[in-house]
Design a protein around this nucleic acid. Structure first.
Lengths: 145, 145
DNA sequence: TAAACTATTTATAACAATTATAATCTAATA
DNA sequence: TATTAGATTATAATTGTTATAAATAGTTTA
């Protein structure tokens, strides 16, 4: 499953004329295998064993490239740095306010809300994002008030 | 209406023991009257006529104070800086991808989604956020591809 | 009211995430 | 092989935000 995602992603790069470099391959692979929605810096640190000379700029550059061809989504929450999510099927995120964990949450999609918003505001609606906030089961026990 | 919002907000500050300084009064007033979901810097610039010596730090500090007592919501999108929204009734935002305009959009609230998310993930759900993206009527005509 | 204390503002420095720049390196093409 | 374009690296610059310390204003207590 992971392998097919990677294969498809590489095909997308070929189709859009983006060269597949070792760094790009590794960043993509890491993103696909990671369930943790990593920051650019986390990716950078995780790959420095494999690529001791890789620059942070390379990570940022390529995340931007991936985003531009639609392979990756950038998630911005209140905290300092963006998180990156390999763009598979449509899904939302639920975020723990205690430990920061981000968990995928699949839901049919809110077509109705999009339609209503379009009707009320006159916008040509393209897409939407939603996050749910709460406390995860792990933190629920040890929560401090 | 605006006036009553301001009055209520000042009451909230009194209740929570937060001093009402001229700067705080002005920042609150600006936020309430503004329909544009301003950044900290926009607030700072808008008030420099009234408070030539006010520091940017004051704006940030007080926006944090307001957020902590629930008067203000911080909105973080993909772009560089946070936007601040006076926290009246529950509403969502629809954002123009062309000009960046943010328009309020009222909707009943997605209790059902919160419940489902809670059920599926085991989180104790607190709240959620949603933004809709598209192209506003003003930009729809002159859109470039 | 005066003195002591606390909160707030200011000015400035520090910080951290991201982007820009220029040089180097790699790969593709002629 | 020579030329060119694209990608990476190292580093500097930028920007939004936060931390710090001194100055100021407001509140409380004697």
């Amino acid at each position: 499953m992971t392998q097919s995602h990677l294969k498809e992603a590489l095909d997308t790069l070929k189709e859009t004329g983006v060269r597949i470099t070792p760094q790009r391959h590794a960043i993509l692979e890491y993103l696909i295998n990671s369930m943790s929605h990593p920051t650019a810096d986390e990716i950078y640190k995780s790959l420095e064993g494999k690529f001791p000379n890789m620059s942070v700029a390379t990570v940022y550059n390529n995340l931007r490239v991936f985003r531009e061809v639609g392979l990756v989504k950038e998630l911005t929450y209140g905290d300092a740095s963006s998180r990156f999510d390999f763009n598979t099927s449509e899904h939302y995120h639920i975020i723990c306010e205690n430990c920061g964990k981000i968990v995928d949450f699949h839901y049919p999609g809110l077509d109705e809300v999009e339609h209503l918003a379009s009707h009320v505001t006159g916008f040509k609606v393209k897409h939407h994002r939603m996050e749910i906030y709460g406390v995860c089961p792990d933190c629920a026990g040890k929560e401090v008030h």
